[in-house]
Design a protein around this nucleic acid. Structure first.
Ligand code: FES
Ligand code: FES
Lengths: 157, 157
DNA sequence: ATGATCTCCGATCAATATGGTCGTACTAAA
DNA sequence: TTTAGTACGACCATATTGATCGGAGATCAT
């Protein structure tokens, strides 16, 4: 449950790879092309290409056309959060399909719904979680994330 | 993205309803039957029935057969966590499909995978989040959940 | 200039997961 | 024994996702 799609998975791998090439190595300005990533991680080439296109369109990476072309991070690895990557591929975070209701399109349960508020809170918490971790964190040291919930232990506030 | 299934949604609604009937009212021992819930929240009857069967099989609720039958919480609302409910319906929490690898069934990327560790950490954080909120929390006061991450402090949404 | 190499983009197909339905058997209270 | 309810398993329809294909543009080397 709560699985993220393969595309999102690929996006994370690709970005991580691009970042690691651009970062720790002696070739700072080197661009990375699709095939290189696809072969390294055994990802279907065309599918990865599509994923990268989307990432590029959403301003996470820059594309360079022609031979010797490829992709480049659009900004520092520390300024790209996991949430941005995932939302870029899979659309806005919506734990339930009526999280972001558009138009007059209410779900039938809306009126008597007893779980909307709590679910939105959970969703928001998850969002914070994802938005507090960056590509940079994935590269370097293991990020430390702690969660505190007053319920289920001593009630504090 | 990260959507939970409708079945899980229904499960939450149903449990919340059962709990609220059993709790705040003057009818402590009253059982709740499937049709009552289905009509109240406009859920397809048969589908809800199936969901409740699963919950019952997993020991979250008790079923009582025959006329005047119905369902009853198996334990206190404070002892049922959101994680338990969701996992009961959708199986174990697995943010990526290779979270819990079984047999020799590795994913192809396993060897060179650069995102496994961070993703598992995120998954664990989400699990804590869900496991720290109980049915009781959803019923009563709004639970307060806070997240603290030392990295990426500047990132705000 | 011209061809080779690469990204870009839209359309399309296949596999899988999900939502929803049906029919029957079983149980316990009235 | 009748009847209102759950239990259970098989089943179909649809939505989502994973993956593929083909061509159009762009850029660089020659
Ligand atoms: S399920 Fe849509 S508002 Fe609660
Ligand atoms: S994707 Fe399977 S181990 Fe990373």
């Amino acid at each position: 449950m709560l699985k993220i799609s393969k595309k999102a998975d690929y996006a994370l791998m690709a970005l991580q790879h691009i970042a690691s090439v651009q970062f720790g190595d002696i070739t700072p300005g080197r661009v990375v092309n699709t095939k290189e990533i696809a072969e390294e991680y055994h990802i279907p080439l065309e599918l990865l290409a599509k994923v990268l296109q989307v990432l590029s369109k959403n301003g996470l990476i820059e594309s360079h056309n022609g031979p010797k072309g490829g992709y480049l991070l659009a900004r520092s690895a520390r300024q790209i959060t996991i949430a941005q990557i995932l939302e870029s591929i899979e659309g806005p975070l919506a734990i339930t399909d009526c999280s972001h209701e558009k138009d007059g399109d209410y779900c039938m349960q809306r009126e008597h719904c007893n779980i909307r508020t709590p679910l939105l809170k959970i969703q928001d918490s998850i969002y914070q979680l994802l938005n507090n971790m960056t590509l940079g964190d994935m590269l370097g040291g293991t990020p430390l994330i702690t969660i505190q919930s007053p319920s289920a232990q001593g009630v504090e506030r």
